[in-house]
């Protein structure tokens, strides 16, 4: 067996084992179907949810619409967090004054669990897109900010000295030295932020919005459709993973500092 095939086999080991355990538990009757439907049943439900024509079943054919709604919310909230978190983190990492200025504010806000913002967000923004986007942005901001800050602090002083002696101004140095040098940390922050975005998306959508993957899960719970809940969970796992790969791919495509240091 080649090294590639072997690696693939190893990486598939755990998912396959989980699937097998699921089969045994549900098909063997160890766990009743309303708690854990069989893989076959979930597959059928998923197939109908994704490819079915509208009206075939309660959730048939809703996937495309739910995906679009959820993706839009995640991307909006995540982008907001990135646009605020990266510059602020880099500033705080390089300028002691900025760091002192925001340390307590950011540290205090971070100590508040993201879920605490839900009631406030519902009062401020009502039920809908804005509440979800707010929650996602709030949650994704901190890892993005913190990693950008750490990245900026860890830039070797010798690189700034080298830049200064080679005639690079401070302003140019931000793009020529600070950003590329902090890139590995910035990427880590963005990936963590992206992961958290999906978590808070579901939280935001649990509040009664009509569409979205989180809304489907919550809706299915009330109707006792455990299979659809599982379909939703699996889909979010897959889409979350794809988003992470796409994020890394896009960064590598756009920045040579990401390409060469990852």
């Amino acid at each position: 067996m080649g090294g590639r095939a072997k690696n693939l086999a190893v990486s598939l080991l755990l998912p396959l084992a989980t699937l097998l355990l699921w089969f045994v538990l549900s098909a063997g009757g160890l766990v009743p179907g309303y708690l854990l439907p069989s893989p076959g049943k979930v597959l059928v439900a998923g197939q109908q949810y994704i490819f079915g024509a509208t009206g075939e079943g309660p959730y048939a054919g809703r996937f495309a619409g739910d995906l679009a709604a959820s993706l839009a919310r995640v991307l909006l909230g995540f982008s907001l967090a990135a646009v605020l978190g990266i510059p602020l983190g880099l500033c705080a990492g390089r300028l002691a004054l900025v760091n002192r200025l925001v340390a307590h504010a950011v540290g205090g806000l971070r100590a508040v669990p993201g879920i605490c913002w839900l009631p406030l967000a519902m009062i401020w923004f009502g039920i809908g897109v804005r509440t979800t986007v707010f929650l996602v942005a709030m949650a994704a901001f901190f890892p993005i900010y913190q990693n950008a800050l750490t990245g900026a602090q860890l830039v070797a002083p010798i690189w700034f000295q080298a830049g200064a002696m080679l005639g690079i101004s401070r302003l140019k140095g931000i793009f020529a030295i600070l950003l590329p040098a902090a890139m590995p940390n910035i990427i880590t922050g963005l990936r963590l932020g992206m992961g958290i975005s999906w978590a808070y998306l579901v939280l935001g959508e649990l509040t009664g919005v009509p569409d979205g993957l989180g809304a489907v899960i919550m809706d299915a719970r009330m109707l006792g459709q455990t299979d659809i809940i599982l379909v939703g969970i699996i889909l979010i796992a897959i889409i979350g993973r794809i988003c992470d790969r796409l994020l890394v791919g896009a960064l590598r495509l756009c920045f040579k500092s990401a390409r060469r240091q990852l």
Partner: peptide, 10 residues
Amino acid sequence: VFQEDALFPW
């Protein structure tokens, strides 16, 4: 020219 490696790794 520094003693340590001061090239830009990216």
